[in-house]
Computed example of a mutant assay.
Amino acid sequence: MTTSEQYSFRKATLYDLPLLKAWRSTPHVRAWWDSDGTYNAADLDDPRVARWIVSFQERPFAFMQDYTVHGWADHHFIELPKGSRGIDQFIGDQEMLGIGHGSAFIGARMKALFQAGAPVIATDPNPANERAIAVYKKLGFKSSGSPQNTKWGLILPMFAMRKNEHR
């Protein structure tokens, strides 16, 4: 059994770029993330996005980002209330898949975002990513409408509301 206290989040740095590149080149991550997209110093400095290396008992195993949904004029979540955050993540270490870490660390980050005042947390998995959708539903996300084509690809919009109020 894992607890949220066993997870730590530290800001991704330039020193993490080789690790992120290696994780993004694995088949289970490439299935849902653009393997050609690499991060650079400007990405890490972008104030709209907080990028995290997630560790379990001090072992780095995942990447997570949360971002202001109002940071892009054409973002598909632009109509959410002020202070809303979007999230994306992947488990890079294949040994850590399928044993509960995803829902645990995402839940821990959601708790922190809600405590910091986010009224809504949004996510946008590919509609074919059944594993991710199941995890999000377990964490209280509800789908909001049909799949949409966006400049980031085909997405299923999902929202979690503070205090278990769902859209």
Rank of each mutant, 00 (worst) to 15 (best):
T150I: 05
S55L: 06
A12W: 08
F159L: 15
K111M: 04
M161L: 15
P147H: 00
K111Y: 08
A116F: 00
S143L: 04
F63C: 10
R51F: 13
K111Q: 13
T150G: 00
D16W: 08
M158G: 01
L156T: 01
G86M: 07
A104H: 14
P119D: 00
G37V: 03
L14H: 07
A42Y: 03
R48W: 11
A41G: 11
S4A: 15
Y67N: 09
L17V: 08
H70E: 12
F114L: 04
G71D: 10
I91G: 06
M1F: 09
T3G: 14
N164K: 08
M110I: 12
V29Q: 07
F159A: 10
P127A: 06
A73M: 12
K111H: 12
V54W: 02
A122M: 08
A62H: 04
G153R: 10
Q57C: 13
R109N: 11
E58H: 11
T2W: 05
D74V: 11
F159E: 15
G86L: 09
S4K: 15
E58L: 06
A132T: 05
G92Y: 03
A41I: 10
D66V: 06
A108R: 15
L80W: 02
I106E: 08
F159P: 01
I99Y: 05
N149D: 13
R30Y: 02
P147R: 01
L19N: 07
T38W: 04
E95Y: 14
K163C: 13
F90M: 06
H166Y: 14
G107T: 04
S144Y: 12
I87C: 07
W72S: 13
A134I: 08
Q57M: 09
P157W: 09
Q115S: 14
P47W: 01
P27K: 13
K137W: 02
H75M: 06
A73T: 15
G83N: 01
Q6G: 13
F9T: 07
E5M: 12
E79N: 11
W23M: 03
P147N: 00
T150H: 07
A108P: 14
D88G: 06
A160P: 00
G98Q: 05
R59M: 11
F63G: 08
V135W: 07
M161W: 14
A116K: 00
G153T: 01
E130S: 15
D16S: 04
E58S: 13
A50R: 14
A22Q: 13
E165H: 14
S146G: 06
Q6V: 05
D34H: 01
G92D: 00
A104K: 12
A50N: 15
I78D: 04
G98H: 11
F56C: 10
R131H: 10
P18W: 00
D36I: 05
G107H: 04
D66P: 13
L19V: 06
Y7A: 07
K163D: 15
W52V: 07
K151I: 08
F56Q: 03
D66I: 05
T150W: 10
Q6I: 01
S8L: 08
K138G: 03
S143Q: 14
N40V: 06
F63E: 08
Q94V: 15
V69Q: 03
P60V: 02
I133H: 01
W23C: 07
T38E: 13
F114E: 05
L14F: 03
